[in-house]
Write a protein that binds this DNA or RNA. Structure first.
Lengths: 352, 352
DNA sequence: CCGCGTTACTAACACGTGTTAAAACCATGC
DNA sequence: GCATGGTTTTAACACGTGTTAGTAACGCGG
């Protein structure tokens, strides 16, 4: 009727006229065991003829390795932001895994109150290692895992925890943005942060802003700094405040594109022309940054590279290699569009 | 040193003073086997005390079930489009899987030339069923899988193949958009398709456009139909053509938001005010649709529900339930913003 | 006391592979 | 002919669970 009986390594062995063990040796290229070229070919041929696939469960059971990694997505307040980068990150992780013939098991943790939602993956030995996106500092499970030596890599850092991670170089990115404005003559540059300062990323972006100012001999003015809170609404409010300052800034760095969108609308609502009356630079390069009016100059995050980096690092840890750079910061990239005023008078950018 | 020896069901059995089989009976709630409440509690207690997790590989091997489903993402030309919905779809699938204690194994197929990139998942028995996003009609592997009775569900349909699928009701969605325009007085309504007509989704959206016209006694005018090609550039070109027609349309339905963005720019470039001089409705509700100027009225696709529907259907097939609705079309939703002219004079919509 | 049905449990095998320790084979030199 | 050493191959066990067939305990009517 259905399913012709599964092909096992025993069938391959019989077909090739050898023992099952020999088949295993050949197919796994076991080091230290020399197999004559003749038998090797016989085995490979038989396996191909029978369309043999080794059973993953049996293999895992015997070898104690699953050839799978877990990707855990923790719900974060910046969901919209995370969503925009998820496809790129997934591709990065997927490519690395595929290259080493690993699978990727996805798990999303809805509820922060139930943080053991991914522990079962480890307990059941579903995976050999785990990539955790959006880690919470109050995640006890995480530290427990690490203590027992289970391979873990974070996407985004958890300061002081010592857990290996891959993250964006936010400081450098912010500096890139602000230096760009400075180089084009601006001296009064406002900052709208992406979030309250207790968020690591927020503090780092502010640090970059500060560094850029100081390195170019400009003074850091607290009055030119306002706090964003992830969404555009907060950007609107912050920009409104900044425009009350006298004299007002000639340029603003908004440390998040979403916040920048709100800020842009607020400036427009007051009759200001961007970039003519006010230059604006964002951060993240979310997909719609190039569509707003004017197209937003911003800092691109290396989504694919984040995923690929985390995947590569985790696979290294799993294989027991001595991974040296266990804390990886990836470089960002300045994407120049119109909102910064460099292209004054140019028409709508239509390229990718 | 490391890893205190794994806790097995044998340990639980000894601790509870029963046999290993009894443990299995209790933990799996095997139907038809009656266990006294006393032993049941003893077993559960022991398992909890020892922090016991059954080994997934062993369980798979013995039961011939993996409790995992595969999600295969095929590269499609509409990548930008797919990316925007991926997070929602993932959440939908993930939720359904999690509810039944299934895992989700992700696999992306980069290269169309290598379509067997996901066959190994089945051959190795990594998964019990598969969800295929962006199926190609020339995918021989797919039909082979189906023929041998392996549970498959498509995201997006493959006409005439008979493979179970979940898809958007594109016809209904397009009708919704066009009816909205008709109800507000428009009689010359142009269509810009999302893609060349050989694409199923494109043909369906045109059909919906046609149905809406006919049901309201308007005649279908070939001259008011132009072909888009996924991107905004094609939308720009198509809109330029439509505006040459005399008399020009008073409203345009662009069967894709991206195409609509290009069309919107083209209209603006000719000095037309949207929605005053020309009403515009899009399709997809990509995240940035609410940010363009004016915010785009469009048709929302139920991303989460697509994932949830596919997940539910696949899990049903796996459990051998008689799934009756094996071809599922999900309803869309009209999202009214400003580009259609209904809110004439209203201020920028700032709500979610 | 015996036979019988029901309930609660157990012994033993199956699942398909990895891997170790030992055996078979083979050529070589004495 | 035989010990030697190296190369291939094999038999046998381990991995941790699900599951069938079977047994002990128990109550009950005869």
């Amino acid at each position: 009727m259905h399913a012709q009986r599964r092909v096992t390594s025993k069938d391959v062995a019989e077909r090739a006229g050898v023992s099952r063990t020999t088949v295993s040796f050949v197919l796994n290229n076991v080091p230290g065991v020399r197999i004559s070229e003749g038998t090797r070919q016989k085995v490979l041929h038989a396996a191909r003829e029978l369309n043999y696939y080794p059973n993953a469960a049996a293999r895992s059971l015997a070898s104690r390795k699953t050839r799978r990694i877990g990707l855990v997505l923790c719900q974060s307040p910046e969901r919209i932001f995370v969503d925009a980068f998820l496809p790129g990150v997934l591709r990065g992780i997927g490519d690395m895994a595929q290259a080493q013939e690993f699978g990727v098991l996805l798990q999303s943790v809805e509820n922060v109150a139930q943080p053991d939602a991914y522990t079962h993956l480890v307990g059941e030995k579903q995976i050999d290692g785990i990539i955790l996106s959006g880690p919470r500092s109050d995640d006890g499970q995480l530290l427990a895992l690490r203590k027992e030596g289970f391979p873990v890599v974070l996407l985004g850092q958890l300061e002081g925890s010592g857990v290996p991670f891959v993250d964006v170089d936010s400081v450098g990115g912010a500096r890139l943005a602000v230096e760009h404005l400075i180089e084009h003559g601006h001296e009064r540059i406002g900052l709208i942060t992406n979030a309250p300062p207790q968020y690591t990323a927020s503090a780092q972006r502010e640090r970059g802003y500060r560094q850029a100012l100081e390195e170019h001999g400009l003074t850091y003015d607290r009055g030119l700094v306002c706090c964003g809170d992830f969404n555009e609404e907060s950007g609107w409010r912050a920009m409104s405040e900044l425009l009350e300052v006298v004299p007002p800034p000639t340029a603003v760095f908004a440390a998040s594109d979403l916040v920048a969108f709100g800020a842009m609308e607020a400036a427009k609502a007051r009759g200001l022309k961007i970039p003519h009356d006010l230059a604006l630079v964002g951060f993240d390069d979310v997909p719609l940054a190039r569509y707003v009016d004017p197209p937003l100059t911003t800092i691109r995050l290396p989504a694919y590279e984040l995923g690929a980096g985390a995947g590569r690092m985790l696979l290294g840890l799993i294989k027991g290699e001595e991974v040296k750079d266990t804390q990886l910061f990836l470089e960002t990239e300045l994407v120049v569009r119109d909102s910064c005023g460099i292209h004054e008078g140019a028409t709508l950018e239509r390229s990718v």
